[in-house]
Simulated scan of single mutants.
Amino acid sequence: MKIIFRMSLFLLVCSCAMTSHKTEKINGVSFVASRDTINDVHIKPLLNIHANYAAIMPFGFIRELSHPEIVFNTERQWFGERAVGVKQYAENMKKNQIKVMLKPQIWVSRGAFTGGIKMTSEADWQVLEDSYTSFILTYAKLAQELQTEIFCIGTELESFIDERPEYWKQLIVNIKKVYKGKLTYAANWNEYDRTPFWDPLDYIGIDAYFPVSDEKTPTVEACRKGWLKHKPTIKSFSERYKKPILFTEVGYRSVDFSGKEPWRSDRDMTVVNLEAQTNTMQVLFEVFWNEDEDWFAGGFLWKWFHNHKEAGGENDSRFTPQNKPVETLVKAHYSK
């Protein structure tokens, strides 16, 4: 009997050890900063769709693409865009068992693409580097204080990285001195394969706005063919660096041609096409969410607003899945 008991205990311990090492798929949302504090009412809709992660996104502002100074954490910003808001959001998420990726981002005046940030003199590059270091270390320290699971060191800053790669490598060293969690960078879909510093990071982060279909209402089959053109390259990139891919942003608008140039956020794209959004999202989940976490970690849907009852809806042409048919699809896949 003792031998049987010991063997049973050994098998139980082994089983528990194996279970504890199972990696959880990141079923995330990009939680939009607002003017307001949040509470359980704002978080309940996340729990309803079985989200287990939220990206919290404070902002720094640049006047124009060649301007070197970043303004951040000021009283003029919305509550959720500042350190005090990050803290309040993160603490409420964690209270509800939702994990956090802190993802500080830059906003250029009039919505210019951040990938084009580029200085015209060495002096300005130095100012930008000092300014960005102050910006990112402020939030890296806060991420450590809040014990966030992931910290994202930047989002879609390809020209800045192309021109100043050594700065970024040293920046990662400095971040690791103050933050001890997992690190990633949110590379644009056409930038990740030349980003020069994946080795010291934990996830290969991709804002996954890959084109998948030129159809006005993309069919499931067309989107599947479109993704299968990209998926092998993405997987081989993960194997090359022996790190999992994390879709730091992913999503589609509820508009015509939603799979053609998924990154577009033009205000004049107003013709609502809910089927287009649903089909593109369905294929995204089918192609990636059943993959092993060793190479595909999951992702963060772009984007989710705190005021769920008023957000999205069937007349909304933007990215959010809230109160649209695709929200039911998200819930079904995240529940797995």
Rank of each mutant, 00 (worst) to 15 (best):
F79K: 01
G85F: 09
W227I: 02
I172C: 04
V84M: 00
E293A: 09
F247S: 12
I234M: 11
E291K: 13
N188I: 07
S317Y: 11
G116L: 14
I3C: 04
P262Y: 12
Y185K: 08
Q277P: 09
T270W: 06
H230N: 01
V32H: 12
T74I: 06
I175E: 09
Y132I: 02
V212Y: 12
H308V: 00
F319D: 10
R224P: 14
A140D: 01
G115A: 10
A222S: 15
D193A: 08
A54V: 09
V29I: 14
Q126T: 14
F305W: 11
R35M: 05
Y167M: 07
N92Y: 02
D124N: 11
Q282N: 14
M93F: 06
K180G: 08
V255I: 06
N307K: 05
I26H: 01
M101L: 01
D193Q: 10
I106S: 01
K169Y: 08
R318I: 00
L12A: 08
S134V: 13
D207W: 05
T114N: 11
A208V: 06
W302E: 03
R82S: 01
T19L: 15
E122Y: 14
V100L: 03
S34H: 00
V330L: 06
R35E: 11
D266F: 14
D207G: 07
G154H: 04
K243N: 08
Q322P: 02
R6Q: 06
T23H: 09
E69P: 00
W295G: 08
K94L: 11
K141A: 10
E286D: 10
M269W: 12
F197V: 04
A17H: 15
A311V: 07
N307R: 08
E64S: 07
Y139D: 07
K216N: 03
T184W: 05
F288C: 05
F288E: 09
L9N: 12
I98L: 02
L65F: 01
W263Y: 14
S15A: 15
F79H: 03
E81M: 10
V108S: 02
K118R: 15
G154N: 08
Q147S: 13
I4W: 02
T248E: 08
L171W: 05
Y179D: 01
K225C: 00
D268C: 12
I117A: 05
L201C: 12
P211D: 02
I234L: 08
V250Q: 07
R318C: 02
V29N: 03
H50N: 09
A140Q: 02
C152N: 13
C152K: 04
T233W: 14
E158T: 10
N290A: 01
E149R: 06
A332H: 15
S109K: 13
Q277V: 07
I172T: 08
F72R: 10
A187C: 11
S317R: 01
Y334C: 04
E275N: 10
N96L: 03
S8Y: 00
D162I: 15
T133W: 06
G313Q: 09
R63T: 04
S20W: 07
T184Y: 07
A90E: 07
E286T: 02
P196M: 06
S121R: 13
F31K: 04
G116K: 14
V29C: 03
A297S: 10
S213K: 09
K141Y: 12
T23M: 07
R264L: 14
P321D: 08
V178W: 00
